[in-house]
Computed example of a mutant assay.
Amino acid sequence: MSADLVLDGLDKRFPGSPTPALQTFSLTVAAGSCTAVLGPSGSGKSTLLRVIAGLEEPDAGTVRIGGTDVAGVAAEHRGIGMVFQRSLLFPHLTVLDNVAFSDRVSGMNRRAARSRAAEYLEMVQLQGFGDRRVGELSGGQEQRVAIARALAAEPAVLLLDEPFSALDPALRSDMHDLLEAVRREVSPTIVLVTHDRDEAARASDRIALLERGVLLHEGTVLDAYRRPQNLRAAQLMGGRNEVTGEVRDGHHHSALGAVPVPPETPTGVGTLVIRQEDVAVLDDDERAAPSGAIPGVVESVRVTGARSEIAVRCGDVLLHAEAPPTQRCPLGGRLLLMLPTAAVHVVA
């Protein structure tokens, strides 16, 4: 059912737009894997999906599905399934007949099409819902039906265009679990467009960061968070610590002093980035301070659920960290911060 997807040098510009929607965009999605395309509004995410699906023609570049260049192939013949933010189900059909639609269009008899549709409804945990009308479903149930309908067409590639963004947090979590179960059962090749970092991390194997039509970063979920390819990628993934300096002799030298860096870090001018959740927060006891501890003064505290986000002034540098609620971080109080070497990353 799944096939690899290879995008090579895609360009797309719309008339009247000052900037391209896509600029020499290249990406490979391995068969059976899921890549989340993450970026702010207007970054080109939906345009990318439309180009893959054949709903837009690129100005340059190629789209290959299973090794075949699909230039000139009509959208309905590309082997693409697509699920949008709105389910776009047929209100005049039952749930079962919505899912059976692609088989009926291809000429399968009604009994066989409905039998297959029932299997896909079971896959999305809606067995017994086949006789209902679309208007009787909740938003989450509608999206489950939309996914079942897309899968019933046995697409080579499944495109998901922010399909869960209109759902409340609990339902979104349920849909992420459902997507994981579907992947275990049928292993579709998936491109998921989202603007939600947590969703991208939860639902995908790899993350591609897109801004103004340019691919900023592509790699594993862990790489996106802790080894971004550039400073803007770090910012898009929610990183808040940026310290300019220079790498030499295995250390990043800056206003913080000499901070050890991983041995593979190249020498030269670079910006040290480290996730705020990776910064260790210690009580200010200089007598027991470990080597490399950085003293600072708490400038702000914001409680977010079970943790506190704190900003600590360390000389000329403001560092952000997270602390458990059991740790006292009074405004104006002194703390020690540790930057674990394994969590430090330097971008050019």
Rank of each mutant, 00 (worst) to 15 (best):
L159D: 03
E142G: 15
A100L: 01
E277P: 04
T265L: 12
H251N: 14
L319I: 02
L272T: 02
V193A: 07
G54V: 02
D11Y: 04
P262W: 00
L337D: 13
G42S: 10
F90M: 12
V63Y: 13
A30T: 07
T326S: 15
L318Q: 13
D223H: 07
A60K: 09
V145M: 03
Q229H: 08
A36S: 07
A112E: 12
R86L: 02
D198P: 01
S254D: 03
G39P: 06
R144F: 00
E246M: 06
A343T: 00
L27F: 02
G213W: 00
P324C: 08
H176E: 14
D316L: 05
A280D: 15
R302L: 15
G128Y: 11
C314A: 12
G107P: 13
L158R: 09
P188F: 07
V344P: 01
A146S: 02
L222D: 15
V95A: 07
P295A: 12
R334I: 09
G54R: 07
D97Y: 06
S41P: 05
E142S: 15
G130D: 04
R275H: 02
F129P: 11
T35C: 09
G257L: 03
P324E: 10
G9F: 04
L7V: 04
P263M: 09
N109F: 04
A203L: 08
D4N: 08
D196H: 06
R184M: 12
L331H: 11
R149P: 01
R78Y: 04
D196W: 03
I294T: 10
E142H: 13
D8F: 05
L93Y: 11
V279Y: 04
A152Y: 08
A208M: 00
A113L: 03
